[in-house]
Design a protein around this nucleic acid. Structure first.
Lengths: 225, 225
DNA sequence: GTCTATAACCGGATAGAC
DNA sequence: GTCTATCCGGTTATAGAC
């Protein structure tokens, strides 16, 4: 990934903000230039066209996000422990960068293949066996730590429940007036809800002695606020 | 909601296709006119501006989608049965209209309040108690059919896992080459995976006699393909 | 490298014939 | 109501001074 000088960096940073919110079509080079504290001419001097700037920004943003996520996947042997780590880290990352998944979902479809091939480039993993997530799930199944689930379905669900509140934030906060998705409280509750869902489901289990303790553990918090 | 004559309907239908894919900024009135089999002048004759056309289209699309979803919420007394119905219907609706959630998520943020107020208008439910989803979850908790979960967290997760594969389809199918999100098989597997997740979680339960039968029931399908 | 001024272009909107 | 031709504003991109 190309090193950038100071001015280029300012432009790319400003462009990232604008592109992530407005997309390539809604973004104005004037807005980017203003935000970067330079003028349009300089933007073109460095990046030639808006589209080339977009490609560079998009690639850096997506690659950076993916590195963060992949770099945070631990190799815990215990699946429950691993899941706790993953959810905790993933929520932290996505709550800090809520615009990135939304941007990708939009531009991959709207941009007629421009983003698509960037994503493809970055995910040079045609062999899904290479994906650490799959490895971890498969190992947990082999070790009988979890029941034999479809890893694809599991991973889709896991990512979905982590990303959803932040991608849908504007809608959620409109539907539920006093919800603050970015608050420490909500994120903590979210983390707990996700872990409980994946580890125990919704049912009240009738499994003997530990049941009451478990039910106690699963009940508490939300009733308080 | 205003009745439309034939020509207006053609324009609105065409506009919906284009707006849903490209957004208001990426959409070209020329594209819409071509798709509708008319010319730009006629589009302006009926709808005055691109923005007014967008507002009308967005409201109709979103209102229609919401009616579909809300109209499909049954009032089963048994929570498990209700969940089965909801997931089945919701997957059918969203797989048939995959662009709508993506469009909403994008435009609510990008459009500086234009869509936001449409959504607000449609969801004239400041009192969340009125939301049938909340009623159903709360009743299931009272009846001890499920453990006492946070309804907000549950609903976010439920919607998320249903919507995710279709919103993320382009990315998913790039990451997992031979995945066909719109295939009957995938949707059926998805439905099963969601229900199993919510009803049982991932753990291998050690709950006595019915356990083996349950494990059998939960294991099967995905290993086959 | 950075700026101001301007060109070139694109796309939404309108005029006016039919 | 529907069309063709045209306008005009906004936005990207370039020229050229410094």
């Amino acid at each position: 990934m190309q090193e950038l000088n100071d001015t280029e960096q300012k432009i790319v940073d400003a462009a990232a903000k604008v592109f992530l919110k407005k997309g390539i079509d809604g973004a104005r080079t004037q807005t980017i230039a203003d935000l970067a504290g330079i003028n349009k001419a300089l933007l073109h001097y460095y990046f030639r066209t808006k589209e080339k700037l977009f490609d560079i920004v998009a690639e850096r943003v997506i690659r950076n996000a993916m590195n963060q996520v992949l770099g945070n996947i631990s190799v815990e042997q215990d699946f429950e422990q691993w899941l706790q780590n993953f959810v905790h880290n993933y929520l932290a990352i996505v709550s800090g960068n809520p615009m990135i998944p939304r941007f990708m979902l939009w531009e991959v479809e709207a941009g007629g293949g421009r983003i698509a091939h960037i994503v493809k480039d970055i995910l040079k993993m045609d062999k899904m066996d290479d994906n650490p997530l799959f490895k971890i799930v498969n190992r947990a199944i082999e070790d009988k730590q979890i029941r034999p689930i479809d890893p694809v379905q599991f991973i889709i669900s896991l990512i979905a429940v982590c990303v959803a509140p932040f991608v849908a934030r504007p809608i959620l906060e409109k539907v539920i007036p006093d919800l603050k998705v970015n608050s420490k409280e909500f994120i903590a509750n979210r983390e707990k809800a996700i872990l409980d869902l994946f580890l125990y489901g919704l049912k009240i289990q009738h499994c003997g002695a530990e049941d009451n303790a478990l039910r106690e553990k699963l009940s508490g918090s939300w009733l308080l606020w």
